[in-house]
Amino acid sequence: MTWEQLIGAGVLAAMLRLATPIALAALGGVIAERSGVVNIALEGCMLVGAFFGVVAADRTHSVVLALAVAMAAGAVLAGVHAVAAIHLRSDQIVSGMALNILALGLTSFLDYQFYGNTGTPADLAAVPDVEIAPLAAVPFIGDVIGHQNTIVWLTVVLVVLIQVFLFRTVPGLRLRAVGEHPRAAETVGIGVRRTRYWAVLASGLLAALGGAYLSLSVAHSFTDGMTGGRGFIGLAAMIFGRWTPIGALVASLVFGYGTALSFSLQGASIGDVRVPVQLLSTLPYVLTILAVAGFVGRSRPPASDGIPYETEGH
């Protein structure tokens, strides 16, 4: 085992790449749950984003259109969840799981219909990397952030914007009020349901962007179930980050680092003992359970998280 394998530029660059889709899903989770809706359909939103992003990139050869289509697909799926959770007051977990399975089945089926057994086309329009010329020559830093993908940077910007929106603006305050005490919020004239609809739609957009990042920035293709539970990991990052955008980003980086380590330490050994890299990969999940159980820091969800709201007089 060497320092290069632990904190080398390659590991840190991989950490950023791996953290990005998780952070985008976590951001979506933060917005939805701050408004009081639990959206475990984020996984499905990522998956439809990944798939329809590829389809649009294939048909239009435009990255911008591809991302737009991907995010629209995520918003549609999230919209179904919003109707079920907000309008119909159904069990948000059941609805979310149903949509996850629906997304998995639908994308696998359409993938087979469109591309058969040959896989998605190789010449897909890809989201470009950002080359930072002055940095690229700097030894360590250049290797870490000198040529990261556009969406990696976009994610950092979104984290800051949403942090400011939630905690420094009036609409952000209203959104949080709806998640903490919807009745009080309604009393002062805030549309509880409307706010929640917008929040859930936004969560679908963000998660789908994370999915499109996987297919259009990293893999340059779509494979069935390619999101591999990153939507759920995003929810874990949201909890570990205590329902704040910046916290969620930090948690995503921790998770990304764990995964990056498990790649770089493949086959490494301390003395004669092989490093059990697979056990390292369990770290994010163990940390999350400990965090929600209150063993590591305090972590409290919004007071009305997951509780359907009903206006009085029904």
């Binding site: 059941v94 149903a98 399975i101 629906l102 998995l104 089945g105 639908l106």
Partner: peptide, 17 residues
């Protein structure tokens, strides 16, 4: 396509929901 089955499964679950 065997994926058709997962679509049907998914639809079944969605109908249940």
């Amino acid at each position: 396509s065997a994926q058709l089955v997962s679509v049907i499964e998914a639809i079944v679950l969605f109908v249940i929901a």
